[in-house]
Design a protein around this nucleic acid. Structure first.
Length: 457
DNA sequence: GGAACTCGCCAC
DNA sequence: AAACGTGGCGAGTTCC
């Protein structure tokens, strides 16, 4: 398949820019990382002893021929679903009984909480801290940023992977990111494109309602009101803000990736709302809502169990795609029809997607790719200025829609201003297909603070 | 002893 | 008719 020369050159420039990031690298607090690893090892050993004293473990050891490995999903599954004959509520892709966090928590066996805690600490120690220590050279890690590995023409990172360091979970985030430091006297600055993928999707689907919702509205709130029957939505109250998050992460995002109402209904009610899956809801079920429980609130609105909630979400999904974002839906049909007819699709940034693809792939790849290409273009331009103006500041990492910089305080104002200009203004002049304004969120950390420390304000 | 697989989990 | 997109990576397991 052909790529235009400018597309080829774009990636060539991209590789050169990313290799400058790689050469720069990021500082690791080696003393901290080594000490934290030891501390975690002690805690893990203590918890292992505690776990092995439980009745559950003794039963497991007693009924197993070979030595029990508590970290083997296969052995754990065999014990729980075989020996103990617990009914499987969730299967893995290959049809085995799942032993992931969600599945284990559902069993309600308190001893398993110890095991989950051990696994969480091991993950942090062995996947992150260990990798930093292993990969560092003279206290600096040089993560690779690849452009040749991903189906969507996004990038990836390895050795160590700097694109999946814990962020959402406060405890593990702090343990891992505390190890990452700016150069002495410098400060971290992060520039994140706001809602990049969905904005880029508008450049394909030209849906005016979606564009309006992104720029002026609050679609998570609007949909939360419909999903949970909230007449007087108030962002400040805990109940409403939880249900807004539930809607965002349990409905909006999955829907944009091609999920459907049945999964979303489970996500929303069982996942976020803590409502039971397999029986009628009671008024005492579910998370704390405004004055009572979510269960009571939904029951009073005629939704009494997962089945009726699923039917409700089906209606919402229909509204979402066939009424509210009907032009997006029309684009999906046109785009899918085109792929089926000619066998490939070309993205706004000039990349060809070919070969056997599912419908969701055809609809997602070009959007995901083009969104990342906005970031890549900004990185290329940013590094050009960095070199030309001989900045002491450096671009040091990228995470799909975000740039991480190691900035000298004297240059802070100029660097942030320049990067914002590149990311929001220059880019829309360069690519006329960008028909939606782009915006960035800037997080400025304090001088010498680690990546775990809170940014200013 | 390594390749290829599964499972689980971190990010966007 | 079917049903969530992209990665990296550690550990366990199976196969050769």
């Amino acid at each position: 398949m052909f790529f235009e020369l400018k597309t080829y050159k774009f990636f060539q420039e991209g590789i050169l820019a990313l290799s400058r990031m790689e050469q720069q690298g990021l500082r690791i607090d080696m003393k901290y990382a080594e000490e934290k690893k030891l501390e975690l090892t002690k805690e893990i050993e203590k918890l292992e002893v505690e776990f092995k004293e439980t009745k559950l473990y003794k039963h497991w050891a007693h009924t197993t021929k070979n030595k029990v490995n508590i970290y083997s999903p296969q052995q754990l599954g065999a014990f729980l679903y075989g020996t103990k004959k617990i009914k499987i509520s969730k299967e893995t892709a290959s049809g085995q009984g799942a032993t992931n966090e969600e599945a284990l928590q559902e069993l309600g066996i308190p001893e398993l909480d110890i095991l989950l805690r051990i696994k969480k600490l091991k993950k942090v120690r062995d996947t992150y801290l260990d990798a930093f220590v292993r990969e560092q050279v003279n206290g600096i890690v040089h993560p690779f940023f690849n452009l040749h590995l991903v189906r969507t023409f996004r990038g990836s990172s390895d050795s160590p992977n700097f694109q999946n360091i814990p962020k959402r979970d406060k405890e593990t985030m702090e343990i891992c990111r505390r190890a990452i430091l700016p150069r002495p006297g410098h400060q971290f600055v992060e520039l994140d494109y706001k809602q990049l993928e969905v904005r880029i999707s508008c450049c394909y689907n030209r849906d005016e309602q979606l564009k309006e919702d992104i720029l002026a509205g609050d679609m998570h709130k609007e949909m939360a009101i419909r999903i949970f029957h909230i007449e007087d939505f108030n962002k400040e109250t805990t109940g409403h803000s939880v249900l807004r998050s539930a809607t965002k992460n349990g409905f909006i995002f999955p829907q944009f990736y091609g999920d459907y109402y049945k999964n979303c209904a489970v996500n929303l009610s069982y996942g976020w709302g803590h409502l039971p899956k397999n029986r009628k809801w009671k008024s005492t079920d579910g998370i704390e809502f405004e004055d009572g429980k979510l269960g009571a609130h939904l029951i009073s609105n005629g939704i009494k169990d997962l089945e009726s909630f699923t039917q409700h979400i089906k209606v919402i999904e229909d509204y979402f795609w066939n009424v509210r974002y009907k032009d997006y839906t029309k684009w999906k049909e046109r785009w899918w029809e085109q792929y089926q007819r000619v066998g490939h699709i070309t993205s706004m940034t000039g990349f060809n997607y070919q070969g056997v693809m599912k419908k969701n792939d055809v609809l997602n790849y070009p959007i995901q790719g083009s969104a990342f290409h906005c970031l890549l273009w900004s990185i290329i331009q940013g590094i050009k200025v960095q070199v030309k103006e001989k900045w002491k500041s450096r671009l040091v990492s990228q995470i799909h829609d975000a740039i991480v910089m190691d900035v000298h305080p004297d240059e802070l104002e100029h660097v942030v201003k320049t990067m914002k200009r590149i990311m929001c203004e220059d880019i829309v002049k360069h690519w006329s297909w960008i028909t939606v304004p782009l915006d960035v969120d800037v997080e400025i950390h304090n001088v010498n603070d680690s990546w775990a420390d809170k940014p200013q304000r």
